[in-house]
Design a protein around this nucleic acid. Structure first.
Lengths: 136, 136
DNA sequence: CTTGACCCTGTACTATGGTACAGGGTGTAA
DNA sequence: TTACACCCTGTACCATAGTACAGGGTCAAG
Protein backbone atom coordinates (compact mmCIF):
# COMPACT_ATOMS: atom_id res chain seq x y z
CA UNK A 1 0.00 0.00 0.00
CA UNK A 2 1.26 3.43 -0.97
CA UNK A 3 1.77 5.79 1.95
CA UNK A 4 2.30 9.50 2.27
CA UNK A 5 4.09 11.71 4.75
CA UNK A 6 2.32 14.58 6.41
CA UNK A 7 3.67 17.12 3.95
CA UNK A 8 2.63 15.03 0.99
CA UNK A 9 -0.87 14.49 2.29
CA UNK A 10 -1.26 18.17 3.12
CA UNK A 11 -0.23 19.10 -0.40
CA UNK A 12 -2.47 16.51 -2.01
CA UNK A 13 -5.51 17.66 -0.06
CA UNK A 14 -4.71 21.34 -0.16
CA UNK A 15 -4.67 21.78 3.60
CA UNK A 16 -2.16 23.26 6.00
CA UNK A 17 0.24 20.66 7.35
CA UNK A 18 -0.68 21.53 10.91
CA UNK A 19 -4.37 20.98 10.26
CA UNK A 20 -3.61 17.28 9.86
CA UNK A 21 -2.23 17.08 13.36
CA UNK A 22 -5.25 19.02 14.55
CA UNK A 23 -7.69 16.60 12.90
CA UNK A 24 -5.83 13.74 14.50
CA UNK A 25 -6.17 15.38 17.89
CA UNK A 26 -9.87 15.94 17.27
CA UNK A 27 -10.15 12.24 16.32
CA UNK A 28 -11.43 12.99 12.84
CA UNK A 29 -8.73 10.71 11.48
CA UNK A 30 -7.20 7.69 13.16
CA UNK A 31 -3.64 8.00 14.41
CA UNK A 32 -1.70 7.02 11.31
CA UNK A 33 1.02 4.41 11.12
CA UNK A 34 4.53 5.56 11.87
CA UNK A 35 7.75 4.94 10.00
CA UNK A 36 10.80 3.60 11.85
CA UNK A 37 11.93 7.08 12.76
CA UNK A 38 8.47 8.14 13.88
CA UNK A 39 7.14 9.90 10.79
CA UNK A 40 3.40 9.68 10.20
CA UNK A 41 2.49 7.53 7.21
CA UNK A 42 -0.92 8.17 5.72
CA UNK A 43 -2.99 5.95 3.47
CA UNK A 44 -5.24 6.86 0.57
CA UNK A 45 -8.17 6.37 2.88
CA UNK A 46 -6.79 9.08 5.13
CA UNK A 47 -6.61 11.36 2.11
CA UNK A 48 -10.25 10.60 1.27
CA UNK A 49 -11.21 11.40 4.82
CA UNK A 50 -9.44 14.74 4.75
CA UNK A 51 -11.18 15.63 1.51
CA UNK A 52 -14.48 14.59 3.00
CA UNK A 53 -13.86 16.80 6.02
CA UNK A 54 -13.06 19.85 3.88
CA UNK A 55 -16.08 19.28 1.68
CA UNK A 56 -18.41 18.89 4.62
CA UNK A 57 -17.03 22.04 6.22
CA UNK A 58 -17.79 24.05 3.11
CA UNK A 59 -21.34 22.77 3.37
CA UNK A 60 -21.70 24.23 6.83
CA UNK A 61 -21.02 21.22 9.04
CA UNK A 62 -18.90 21.70 12.15
CA UNK A 63 -16.06 19.32 12.96
CA UNK A 64 -18.24 17.70 15.62
CA UNK A 65 -21.00 17.11 13.12
CA UNK A 66 -18.49 15.74 10.65
CA UNK A 67 -17.24 13.37 13.30
CA UNK A 68 -20.79 12.11 13.72
CA UNK A 69 -21.13 11.67 9.98
CA UNK A 70 -17.88 9.72 9.87
CA UNK A 71 -18.98 7.48 12.70
CA UNK A 72 -22.13 6.54 10.81
CA UNK A 73 -21.29 2.99 9.97
CA UNK A 74 -22.34 -0.35 11.20
CA UNK A 75 -20.04 -2.83 12.81
CA UNK A 76 -20.57 -6.54 12.44
CA UNK A 77 -23.11 -8.07 14.80
CA UNK A 78 -24.38 -4.73 16.01
CA UNK A 79 -27.85 -3.35 15.64
CA UNK A 80 -28.50 -0.90 12.84
CA UNK A 81 -31.03 1.03 14.89
CA UNK A 82 -28.90 3.80 16.36
CA UNK A 83 -27.05 4.37 13.11
CA UNK A 84 -30.29 4.41 11.18
CA UNK A 85 -31.69 7.04 13.46
CA UNK A 86 -28.69 9.28 13.18
CA UNK A 87 -28.52 8.85 9.42
CA UNK A 88 -32.17 9.82 9.21
CA UNK A 89 -31.51 12.94 11.26
CA UNK A 90 -28.53 13.90 9.11
CA UNK A 91 -30.57 13.31 5.99
CA UNK A 92 -33.14 15.80 7.24
CA UNK A 93 -30.44 18.36 7.93
CA UNK A 94 -29.01 17.89 4.48
CA UNK A 95 -32.42 18.26 2.87
CA UNK A 96 -33.06 21.46 4.79
CA UNK A 97 -29.74 22.85 3.63
CA UNK A 98 -30.52 21.97 0.03
CA UNK A 99 -33.86 23.70 0.35
CA UNK A 100 -32.25 26.87 1.70
CA UNK A 101 -29.63 26.91 -1.02
CA UNK A 102 -32.27 26.43 -3.68
CA UNK A 103 -34.13 29.51 -2.46
CA UNK A 104 -30.92 31.43 -2.54
CA UNK A 105 -30.22 30.20 -6.02
CA UNK A 106 -33.65 31.26 -7.18
CA UNK A 107 -33.18 34.79 -5.88
CA UNK A 108 -29.72 35.08 -7.39
CA UNK A 109 -31.00 33.88 -10.74
CA UNK A 110 -33.85 36.33 -10.68
CA UNK A 111 -31.40 39.06 -9.89
CA UNK A 112 -29.07 38.13 -12.69
CA UNK A 113 -31.97 37.90 -15.08
CA UNK A 114 -33.26 41.34 -14.20
CA UNK A 115 -29.80 42.79 -14.45
CA UNK A 116 -29.29 41.38 -17.89
CA UNK A 117 -32.64 42.60 -19.15
CA UNK A 118 -32.48 46.18 -18.03
CA UNK A 119 -30.40 48.68 -19.94
CA UNK A 120 -27.40 49.90 -18.04
CA UNK A 121 -28.71 53.41 -17.49
CA UNK A 122 -32.10 52.45 -16.08
CA UNK A 123 -32.33 51.28 -12.51
CA UNK A 124 -32.56 47.60 -11.70
CA UNK A 125 -35.73 46.77 -9.80
CA UNK A 126 -34.05 44.46 -7.37
CA UNK A 127 -33.67 46.67 -4.34
CA UNK A 128 -35.35 44.91 -1.51
CA UNK A 129 -35.80 41.50 -3.05
CA UNK A 130 -32.98 39.88 -1.21
CA UNK A 131 -32.82 41.40 2.18
CA UNK A 132 -36.54 40.95 2.63
CA UNK A 133 -35.72 37.37 3.46
CA UNK A 134 -39.21 36.30 2.50
CA UNK A 135 -37.82 33.92 -0.09
CA UNK A 136 -35.60 31.99 2.25
CA UNK B 1 -44.03 51.74 10.76
CA UNK B 2 -43.88 49.28 13.64
CA UNK B 3 -40.58 49.18 15.45
CA UNK B 4 -38.95 46.78 17.86
CA UNK B 5 -36.44 47.15 20.65
CA UNK B 6 -33.31 45.05 20.76
CA UNK B 7 -34.80 42.52 23.11
CA UNK B 8 -37.93 42.15 21.00
CA UNK B 9 -35.97 41.67 17.80
CA UNK B 10 -33.66 39.16 19.45
CA UNK B 11 -36.64 37.16 20.66
CA UNK B 12 -38.42 37.31 17.33
CA UNK B 13 -35.39 36.09 15.44
CA UNK B 14 -34.23 33.63 18.05
CA UNK B 15 -30.80 35.20 18.47
CA UNK B 16 -28.88 36.40 21.50
CA UNK B 17 -29.45 40.08 22.20
CA UNK B 18 -25.74 40.78 22.05
CA UNK B 19 -25.44 39.27 18.60
CA UNK B 20 -27.49 42.17 17.28
CA UNK B 21 -24.95 44.64 18.51
CA UNK B 22 -22.25 42.47 17.00
CA UNK B 23 -23.94 42.42 13.58
CA UNK B 24 -24.27 46.16 13.74
CA UNK B 25 -20.57 46.49 14.46
CA UNK B 26 -19.80 44.16 11.57
CA UNK B 27 -22.05 46.32 9.37
CA UNK B 28 -24.37 43.46 8.51
CA UNK B 29 -27.26 45.66 9.54
CA UNK B 30 -27.48 49.42 9.34
CA UNK B 31 -27.31 51.37 12.58
CA UNK B 32 -30.96 51.41 13.58
CA UNK B 33 -32.99 54.45 14.50
CA UNK B 34 -32.91 55.50 18.12
CA UNK B 35 -35.71 56.46 20.45
CA UNK B 36 -35.53 59.71 22.39
CA UNK B 37 -33.69 58.07 25.23
CA UNK B 38 -31.25 56.30 22.90
CA UNK B 39 -32.82 52.86 22.57
CA UNK B 40 -32.35 51.09 19.26
CA UNK B 41 -35.53 50.80 17.21
CA UNK B 42 -35.55 48.09 14.60
CA UNK B 43 -37.79 47.74 11.56
CA UNK B 44 -39.25 44.61 10.02
CA UNK B 45 -36.59 44.84 7.37
CA UNK B 46 -33.96 44.53 10.08
CA UNK B 47 -35.71 41.40 11.29
CA UNK B 48 -35.67 39.96 7.78
CA UNK B 49 -31.99 40.70 7.53
CA UNK B 50 -31.23 38.95 10.79
CA UNK B 51 -33.16 35.90 9.64
CA UNK B 52 -31.32 35.99 6.34
CA UNK B 53 -27.98 36.13 8.15
CA UNK B 54 -28.80 33.13 10.33
CA UNK B 55 -30.04 31.13 7.38
CA UNK B 56 -27.00 31.90 5.30
CA UNK B 57 -24.72 30.94 8.17
CA UNK B 58 -26.35 27.55 8.43
CA UNK B 59 -25.61 27.09 4.76
CA UNK B 60 -21.91 27.59 5.33
CA UNK B 61 -21.46 31.25 4.44
CA UNK B 62 -19.20 33.38 6.62
CA UNK B 63 -20.32 36.78 7.84
CA UNK B 64 -18.07 38.39 5.26
CA UNK B 65 -19.66 36.39 2.50
CA UNK B 66 -23.08 37.25 3.83
CA UNK B 67 -22.11 40.90 3.78
CA UNK B 68 -21.26 40.52 0.11
CA UNK B 69 -24.58 38.83 -0.54
CA UNK B 70 -26.41 41.62 1.22
CA UNK B 71 -24.59 44.25 -0.78
CA UNK B 72 -25.73 42.63 -4.01
CA UNK B 73 -28.20 45.22 -5.13
CA UNK B 74 -28.24 47.92 -7.67
CA UNK B 75 -28.55 51.57 -6.89
CA UNK B 76 -30.26 53.97 -9.24
CA UNK B 77 -28.16 55.21 -12.13
CA UNK B 78 -25.36 52.76 -11.48
CA UNK B 79 -24.09 50.06 -13.77
CA UNK B 80 -25.29 46.55 -13.17
CA UNK B 81 -22.00 45.06 -14.30
CA UNK B 82 -20.18 44.62 -11.00
CA UNK B 83 -23.26 43.33 -9.24
CA UNK B 84 -24.00 40.97 -12.09
CA UNK B 85 -20.50 39.56 -11.86
CA UNK B 86 -20.69 39.00 -8.12
CA UNK B 87 -24.15 37.49 -8.34
CA UNK B 88 -22.87 35.12 -10.98
CA UNK B 89 -19.99 34.10 -8.73
CA UNK B 90 -22.28 33.56 -5.77
CA UNK B 91 -24.62 31.54 -7.94
CA UNK B 92 -21.75 29.22 -8.81
CA UNK B 93 -20.86 28.82 -5.16
CA UNK B 94 -24.46 28.01 -4.31
CA UNK B 95 -24.69 25.48 -7.10
CA UNK B 96 -21.49 23.79 -5.91
CA UNK B 97 -22.86 23.56 -2.41
CA UNK B 98 -26.09 22.04 -3.66
CA UNK B 99 -24.11 19.50 -5.62
CA UNK B 100 -22.08 18.51 -2.58
CA UNK B 101 -25.16 18.19 -0.41
CA UNK B 102 -26.87 16.09 -3.02
CA UNK B 103 -23.97 13.63 -3.00
CA UNK B 104 -24.16 13.49 0.75
CA UNK B 105 -27.87 12.92 0.57
CA UNK B 106 -27.40 10.09 -1.88
CA UNK B 107 -24.95 8.31 0.39
CA UNK B 108 -27.13 8.78 3.44
CA UNK B 109 -30.14 7.44 1.60
CA UNK B 110 -28.22 4.42 0.40
CA UNK B 111 -27.10 3.79 3.94
CA UNK B 112 -30.58 4.06 5.35
CA UNK B 113 -31.89 1.80 2.64
CA UNK B 114 -29.32 -0.90 3.31
CA UNK B 115 -29.90 -0.64 7.02
CA UNK B 116 -33.60 -1.10 6.61
CA UNK B 117 -33.22 -4.08 4.33
CA UNK B 118 -30.82 -6.11 6.37
CA UNK B 119 -32.04 -8.10 9.34
CA UNK B 120 -30.73 -6.84 12.63
CA UNK B 121 -28.42 -9.76 13.23
CA UNK B 122 -26.70 -9.71 9.86
CA UNK B 123 -24.03 -7.16 9.19
CA UNK B 124 -24.77 -4.03 7.22
CA UNK B 125 -22.59 -3.76 4.12
CA UNK B 126 -21.88 -0.08 4.53
CA UNK B 127 -18.49 -0.13 6.13
CA UNK B 128 -16.27 1.99 3.99
CA UNK B 129 -18.86 3.56 1.75
CA UNK B 130 -18.83 6.90 3.41
CA UNK B 131 -15.33 7.58 4.49
CA UNK B 132 -14.03 6.66 1.06
CA UNK B 133 -15.12 10.11 0.00
CA UNK B 134 -15.34 8.98 -3.58
CA UNK B 135 -18.98 9.95 -3.71
CA UNK B 136 -18.47 13.55 -2.72
C1' DC C 1 30.61 17.30 7.59
C1' DT C 2 27.46 20.69 7.16
C1' DT C 3 23.43 22.62 4.89
C1' DG C 4 18.66 22.09 3.58
C1' DA C 5 14.41 19.90 3.54
C1' DC C 6 11.84 17.17 5.70
C1' DC C 7 9.81 15.26 10.17
C1' DC C 8 8.76 15.26 15.62
C1' DT C 9 6.58 17.41 20.12
C1' DG C 10 4.76 20.96 22.80
C1' DT C 11 2.91 25.31 23.34
C1' DA C 12 1.44 29.91 22.04
C1' DC C 13 -0.97 32.72 19.10
C1' DT C 14 -4.71 33.95 15.72
C1' DA C 15 -9.35 34.85 13.45
C1' DT C 16 -14.19 34.33 13.52
C1' DG C 17 -18.40 34.68 15.73
C1' DG C 18 -20.17 35.53 19.33
C1' DT C 19 -21.39 35.90 24.90
C1' DA C 20 -21.07 37.90 29.40
C1' DC C 21 -20.37 41.22 32.52
C1' DA C 22 -19.67 45.95 34.87
C1' DG C 23 -21.38 50.27 35.60
C1' DG C 24 -24.99 53.23 34.59
C1' DG C 25 -29.71 55.26 32.75
C1' DT C 26 -35.14 54.98 32.10
C1' DG C 27 -39.81 54.02 32.93
C1' DT C 28 -43.81 51.48 34.86
C1' DA C 29 -46.10 49.16 38.60
C1' DA C 30 -46.87 48.24 43.49
C1' DT D 1 -40.18 55.77 46.05
C1' DT D 2 -38.16 51.90 45.22
C1' DA D 3 -37.93 47.59 42.79
C1' DC D 4 -37.77 45.52 38.42
C1' DA D 5 -37.25 44.95 33.65
C1' DC D 6 -35.65 46.91 30.17
C1' DC D 7 -31.99 49.69 27.60
C1' DC D 8 -27.00 51.96 26.95
C1' DT D 9 -21.58 51.61 26.40
C1' DG D 10 -17.28 49.47 26.90
C1' DT D 11 -14.51 45.69 27.65
C1' DA D 12 -13.38 40.99 28.78
C1' DC D 13 -14.03 36.48 27.96
C1' DC D 14 -15.30 32.17 25.30
C1' DA D 15 -15.40 28.14 21.70
C1' DT D 16 -14.10 26.59 17.31
C1' DA D 17 -10.80 25.79 13.96
C1' DG D 18 -6.90 26.28 12.94
C1' DT D 19 -1.66 28.44 12.35
C1' DA D 20 2.91 29.42 13.85
C1' DC D 21 6.79 28.86 16.30
C1' DA D 22 10.66 26.86 19.33
C1' DG D 23 13.68 23.33 20.05
C1' DG D 24 15.18 19.15 18.35
C1' DG D 25 15.91 14.67 15.20
C1' DT D 26 16.97 12.36 10.32
C1' DC D 27 18.88 11.99 6.07
C1' DA D 28 20.58 12.91 1.29
C1' DA D 29 23.34 16.02 -1.65
C1' DG D 30 27.17 18.99 -2.27
Amino acid sequence: MKTMTRGELAKECGVNIEALRYYEKRRLIDPPMRSEIGYRLYSNEDAARIRFIRNAQKLGFTLNEILELLKLRIKKNESCEPVLEKAQKKLNEVEQKIKGLKSMKKVLKKMIHRCEESTLTSDCPILGSFESGREL
